[in-house]
């Protein structure tokens, strides 16, 4: 109880300090809450940016396509690495080394190749989501008890059955965690891509507001984008919890 009160106190104090500090220093640069709220209202009533719904939809579509690709390729590559010992030992370290590269270095090449439209954002979101999913599938397969697989095979289970009945339940825990991380990174990738260079989407709106020094609109747009990001993660965590309950 006391903890909650203290938290609330800190939040209120921070907002108050922000409000007073921003007014005293430079309201245009520091955007006090009293300026951010009206801007948010203007944004949500489609007054300041009428293209908001279209931009949200585009960003969501880019995320969905990139995530679907990341799952398909990530599960495929992860399974190839995990199921074949030689492939895993030879190429696993290469995938892990590439994961150590800050992914943003690939973005200019992707932008050159795919252009400024949605394709380069999808490619970058895919790239960011691909690694955690691949590595989770790989780790998941490695933690499945090999005796169980041997027994299932001995009783005449065919590979698809072994995968569905033995491996999937055994690795679900790890897999779902990787899928959640993958979604979070895909979302970030798409938005980073849009902010670094795009013609449409939430990142472009944010850039537009920033470029024109419409700082209150910028804060409002960031708020809306944040809802999108937190919302997608909340859905993912719900699914994660379901899956965990199912395995227990």
């Amino acid at each position: 109880m006391r903890v909650v009160a203290l938290r609330a106190l800190i939040l209120v104090a921070a907002l108050l300090a922000w409000e007073l500090g921003a007014r005293a220093a430079n309201p245009l640069l520091y955007v006090p809450p009293s300026a951010a709220v009206p801007a948010l209202v203007r944004l949500l009533t489609l007054d300041s940016y009428p293209e908001l719904p279209a931009s949200l939809l585009l960003t969501l579509r880019e995320i969905a396509i990139a995530y679907a690709l990341a799952i398909a390729v990530g599960v495929g590559v992860g399974a190839a690495l995990g199921l074949n010992r030689l492939v895993g030992r030879a190429y696993g370290p290469i995938v892990a080394a590439l994961y150590a590269v800050p992914a943003v270095v690939w973005y200019p090449s992707l932008m050159l190749f795919f252009g400024l439209d949605a394709a380069s954002k999808i490619a970058f979101g895919f790239l960011l989501g691909f690694f955690p999913i691949t590595l989770a599938v790989l780790a998941g397969i490695r933690q499945v008890n090999p005796h169980m697989i041997a027994v299932a095979r001995a009783f005449g289970a065919r590979p698809p059955t072994v995968f569905a009945k033995v491996m999937l339940p055994g690795m679900l825990f790890t897999l779902v965690g990787g899928l959640r991380t993958g979604l979070a990174l895909t979302v970030i990738g798409v938005i980073v891509g849009e902010i670094l260079g795009a013609k449409a989407g939430m990142g472009t709106l944010i850039n537009h507001a920033y470029g024109l020094f419409r700082t209150a609109d910028y804060v409002a747009l960031v708020g809306v984008t944040l809802v999108l990001i937190v919302g997608s993660d909340a859905v993912a965590s719900l699914i994660e919890r379901r899956a965990r309950r199912w395995t227990e």
Binding site: I188, N207, Y210, T215, Y218, L226, I229
Partner: peptide, 11 residues
């Protein structure tokens, strides 16, 4: 996501 505050930091 830190990318959202990047424009503000640059401002």
């Amino acid at each position: 996501p830190k990318i959202l505050v990047l424009p503000w930091i640059v401002l």
